[in-house]
């Protein structure tokens, strides 16, 4: 594996009596796309919130790009980008205004924010809609803006929390291509999804989480080998075998 960029050691987080994250440990190499899979309520989003400094862990250690989250939170925030599961955009503003605003929050000056905003909009195929009000965009376009905002400020680690939920195949495919393109340029990505084929296509390694713990972690191929022939078994089969078929919520 490449040089470790993100290191998580024995992470714990409880909400009252409920253990949301119970001793999670993993590492992500620089330039790797790492998948975090799990049923609803497994603790994926809580884990991402702790890694992105929104939530304080009860115990454990998180190091990102050599900075510990507990003591160097601001340094961590300067090198991460987060694309949350729910859309986090100002729908009453234009695409460009959204991008420039978050660019400024990422520490860019006005001119750089504008330049980077146009570049990221072009990457997402939205350069012609830069001045358009986001409320008028389709669901797929809003998802792409949501992702484009996460790229403002040149982050080195990207958290993508189910970035393709509820969008059409064309938009989804466009996003896959963007993600692979980012990885080629050296971006490290932590990717969560419920779409197993997505994880299979994009991720070098995946961790399967359930009940606040990582129950399995390896490359998609190795995971598939655990239950059968990698050419015949899908990652979904692996997932269902490891987490069970009962409904979670």
């Amino acid at each position: 594996m490449a040089e470790e960029f993100l290191v998580v050691k024995d992470l714990h987080k409880s909400f009252h009596d409920f253990k949301a994250v119970n001793g999670v440990s993993f590492t992500i190499g620089k330039g790797e796309i790492f998948g975090l899979l799990g049923p609803n309520g497994a603790g994926k989003t809580t884990t991402i919130r702790m890694l992105s400094t929104v939530l304080t862990a009860d115990s454990g250690e998180i190091t990102i790009g050599g900075h510990t989250v507990r003591k160097e939170a601001e340094a961590v925030r300067s090198i991460i980008g987060v694309c949350p599961q729910d859309l986090a955009i100002y729908e009453d503003l234009s695409a460009l205004d959204n991008m420039v605003f978050f660019g400024r929050m990422a520490g860019l000056n006005g001119r750089d924010a504008r330049e980077q905003a146009m570049a990221n909009l072009k990457l997402m195929g939205l350069q012609d809609r830069a001045g358009g009000k986001v409320s008028k965009f389709s669901g797929g376009m809003k998802r792409r803006i949501n992702l484009a905002i996460a790229l403002m400020g040149n982050p080195r680690l990207l958290f993508l929390d189910e970035p393709t939920v509820g969008i059409d195949p064309q938009s989804r495919n466009h996003i896959y291509e963007n993600i692979l393109g980012l990885q080629k340029n050296g971006m490290t990505i932590l990717y969560t999804t419920h779409y197993m084929e997505e994880a299979d296509r994009l991720c070098q390694r995946v961790a399967i989480m359930d009940g606040g713990q990582i129950i399995s972690m390896d490359t998609p191929r190795s995971l598939k080998s655990q239950i059968g022939s990698p050419e015949q078994v899908t990652l979904e089969d692996v997932f269902l075998k490891m987490t069970g078929r009962s409904l979670r919520d």
């Binding site: 992105s52 980008g81 955009i89 100002y90 400020g153």
Partner: peptide, 13 residues
């Protein structure tokens, strides 16, 4: 709006 958490992950204190 969902933007609060996003803001909290930026350099904004």
């Amino acid at each position: 709006r969902g933007t609060l958490e996003r803001l909290l992950t930026t350099r904004l204190s």
